[in-house]
Design a protein around this nucleic acid. Structure first.
Lengths: 227, 227
DNA sequence: TGCGTTATCTTAACGCCGTCAAGTTTGATT
DNA sequence: AATCAAACTTGACGGCGTTAAGATAACGCA
């Protein structure tokens, strides 16, 4: 009955990873509300005080989970973009759909990443992961705006903005995807999920209409903007 | 040092309201993470078990707070729409700005309304308040789509949809406003707030660019939609 | 006016939580 | 083989939400 991972002795072997795995499992089963450090320690077959050595405190554990969340978000978006580039699909649309897919696949973790539970601010790994994810969004939005060449993207980091105009568009893209994703997994759209068609219908509505509206808005003639 | 409200005796007098006030204060000061039922009871000058009679449990109290949150959201949106109708401004833009304003004014309460903390599902008052708020969004989006006459709106409730096309647009509007609002108050845009201009710059960006993109997208020729 | 009924609130306790200090075990280094 | 640092346990602390049982006061009715 010892640890889920490791060798089962006094020393666990890889408690850090075991705790993260346990945290993911608890988040998946009971959600962020039912998350407790003691439960995670229990699943890892370890005393409640053991995790302190690896994570400092509960916030440290959640920060590690959030870092993984950002990484998966980045990976999924990159994969989706690559696929779109291959098949000739819309890169921005691919990102928007990947974002929702990640949120739906692991809602508990997603809420840790973007939720109100305080994370370790200033954590290096977390910051790096967050910057990477946001950088993808920036890069693709700028590409859609015609600010960069595709070849350039693969070698150079997104770096700076072209000013508030681009930032506004970037935040617009992020707002739509993030807004719909959070509303869906937080149950705000529950009444619509209860209707015939269920969640599938909403997801289809998202990819067929919301994303289309989004892409069209981003690509509209710039002259139309800026009252 | 007795209760904040009421007469100070053994019986509080209006504990229900006092608990709600205390809850709002705690949410404003310590956020949703630092919210505890005992702290609220302490501020109301009452024992930890007292609130049970009025709210059942903590979720009941939060549900009452969320109901007020929905009501304020509705009121703010209606006021903004009325003002826009008076001055000839864009009604949809007015709603989007009112939404953000409410979120910024009371971020703690806003997170209770739309957060992961479970509320009493099926609560009558809560449902009514939520339906009212959403109804405003539906009504105004349909108006923007040219589905209803203005005069009709003042007398008739929003009622049904014209199908998935309208629903998609409605959710699009909601996603943008909700997405930006939650990201802002949850600190996702923190790095941008730290830059010169601070939060004000972001809010300006929202009302001048995001909302413009949103309104333009909603009002674009419908023929362009529906791959 | 007096009395019983009922809603309201207190007290006391339960189990669970996150965290800390101190002690124990283990693996690694020399 | 001896030493040391890292990893984990034990035990305790205060705080949490909730409950059961008892105290108090307001209210309705005679």
């Amino acid at each position: 009955m010892a640890g889920v991972t490791g060798r089962g002795g006094y020393h666990h072997g890889d408690l850090r990873q075991a705790m993260i795995d346990a945290a993911e499992a608890v988040l998946a089963e009971k959600g962020v509300g039912g998350f407790t450090l003691r439960e995670c320690a229990r699943r890892a077959g370890v005393s409640p005080a053991a995790p302190a050595h690896h994570f400092g405190n509960m916030v440290g554990l959640l920060t590690a989970v959030a870092t993984l969340g950002f990484d998966e978000l980045s990976s999924s978006m990159e994969t989706a973009v690559a696929e779109a580039a291959r098949t000739g699909g819309d890169r921005l649309a691919a990102i928007a759909e990947a974002y929702l897919a990640v949120a739906m696949a692991r809602p508990g973790r997603f809420r840790v990443v973007f939720g109100r539970l305080g994370l370790k601010r200033g954590d290096e790994d977390l910051m790096r992961a967050a910057v990477r994810a946001f950088g993808i969004l920036v890069r693709e939005t700028k590409l859609a705006l015609g600010r960069q060449e595709t070849a350039d993207l693969l070698t150079r980091p997104p770096s700076s903005f072209s000013g508030d105009d681009d930032l506004g568009t970037i935040l617009f893209v992020w707002s739509v995807t993030h807004g719909f994703s959070t509303m869906l997994i937080d149950g705000q759209l529950g009444p619509f999920e209860a209707q015939p068609g269920g969640r599938e219908r909403l997801v289809k509505l998202y990819s067929q209409q919301l994303v289309h509206l989004l892409v069209t808005a981003v690509r509209q003639p710039r002259a139309a903007i800026g009252a």
